Structure formats: C-alpha cells, structure tokens
Amino acid sequence: MPRISLLYFTILLFFISSFKLNTQAGTISTNDLDQAMAKKNSDLAQFQAAKASYKEVGSIQNYLEIRAPFNGIISSRNVNLGAYVGPSGKGSELPLFTLQDQKNLRLAVSIPEVYTGYLKQGDEVTFTVKSLPSQTFKAKVKRLSGALDLRLRSERIEMDVPNAAKRLLPEMVAEINIPLPANANTFIIAKKALLDTSEGLYVLKIEKNKAVKKGRETDEKVEIFGNLNEGDKLIAEPTEEMHEGMVIKP
C-alpha cells in the first residue's frame, strides 16, 4: 500500500508540473506556430480571392448594364433582347437605341441674312405645330450661331422649349412667328408704292426719284431705307414710264 500511494503521488506531481510548464511562454513548439501562421495566411488568401471573384462578377454585371447621364424615353431601338451586338453582328453600324429627354426640347430655325440684325438673345417667339393648331407655344432665343451658313446664307438660332406635359414631340415641324423689332428709324410704305426696276428699287417722290433699300415686309406693306424725310410725298402707284419733270396730277 505505501508503494502504491507513493506512485500515485509521483504521477500526480508530474501532471501538475507539466500543467505549470505548459502555461509558461515558449512551451509551444516553433513548428506549431509556423503551421498556425501558414493556415492563417492560407485562409486570408482564400478570403481575398473570394472578394476578387465577387468584384469580377460585379464588374461583368455592370458591363452588361448601360447607364445614361439623364432620365428619358427610349424612342427607338435597333436591337432586341438576346441579339448579338459586335463588329459583325446586327446593329453594329447603328446605335443600340436612342434616348430622349422630352421634358426639355430645342427649337432650331435658320434666319435669312437680311433679318439677322433684328434678333438678339432673350427675344421671345411664338410657334404652333400641325398636331395642335389651336395652341400657341412660347420660347425665348437662347443661342445664336454668330455666323452664316454658306449654303443657305442664314444664321441658325436655337430656343429651349419646356415640355413638362409632353404635348410636343421631338422632330415636329413648327411654324414660328418671330417678331423683328426695328433698331432704327425706318419708313413703312405700301408695296404698290415700291418700284422694282432692273436698276434697283425706287420710290417716286413728288420732287424726284429716290433710290431705296427694301427691308422687312408683310402682305401689303414693306419697310424701306433711303434718303427720305418725314413728310415727303410719294406716288402711290409708280410706273417705269414716269420720269423726272413729269407733271403729276393728284
């Protein structure tokens, strides 16, 4: 019995000593630490790879989405869902679709050279369209090209047209009424009083002929520029047979 008790005590004492030794620093082997660190680095690498794969899938999904810089309506589409789009595919020579912002439209018109001096930025114009003949729309001149088109000899002007109700549609043809306020003192006469000859435009004053330049005109009247004064008397219906010194009967 004493031997058994002594052996049990010795084994218990060794176990307690081993437990104390394991709680001290440096008791874990370097190999175990290296394996644990390698396992940690391997798990971290797998985590980073999973994150990269997730970003790759997100990038591919974003590549398949087309984002526009503004909200609008797709007014035309040249390809259908599932169609191949590429260098040799259908629609390669055409845009995929056309996106239009119909809340704000742009009205463009070309002004003949003779009238370009009457318009400036901010002038208001009115216009109508064939689909809504009873309605009159307003717009203000926002941009002037500042140069003449060499082919048409006209200046392009643009107006912004609010279209919140979407009553107007893009590519509509508008009939525009553009006011041309006079920027100088001019005279307005009846068209019958203007004599158009091979030598130029004339009005016949009671004293003698006066050469003039024609300006704006309406159905019955025309604006003239020339050496005329207020109160001058003109012949209402001149002809080329009339000459200087001829007696004019009232």
Rank of each mutant, 00 (worst) to 15 (best):
P2A: 09
R3P: 01
L12Y: 11
L12R: 13
L13Y: 12
L13E: 14
F14Q: 08
F14T: 13
S17D: 06
K20F: 08
Q24Y: 11
T27W: 06
S29P: 09
N31L: 08
L33W: 10
K40G: 05
K40V: 14
D43H: 11
F47L: 14
A52I: 13
K55E: 15
S59Y: 02
Q61W: 08
L64G: 14
E65T: 13
E65N: 10
A68M: 09
F70Q: 07
G72S: 00
I74R: 00
R77N: 14
N78E: 12
N80P: 00
L81P: 02
V85W: 00
L94N: 11
P95C: 05
L96S: 05
F97R: 03
I111D: 01
I111S: 01
E113K: 15
Y115V: 06
Y118I: 05
Y118K: 00
L119G: 02
G122T: 03
D123K: 08
E124D: 10
T126L: 04
K130H: 04
P133Y: 06
S134Y: 09
A139P: 00
D149S: 01
D149V: 08
L152V: 07
R153V: 01
I157C: 03
M159Q: 11
D160L: 06
P162T: 02
A165I: 05
L168A: 00
E171H: 08
T186G: 05
F187A: 05
F187I: 10
K191I: 06
K192S: 11
L194Q: 00
L194R: 06
L195H: 03
D196G: 09
I206S: 13
E207D: 06
N209T: 11
N209S: 15
A211D: 11
A211V: 09
V212H: 05
R216C: 13
E217G: 14
V222H: 04
I224A: 02
N227E: 15
N229H: 12
K233V: 08
A236V: 15
E237I: 06
E240A: 12
H243A: 07
I248E: 14
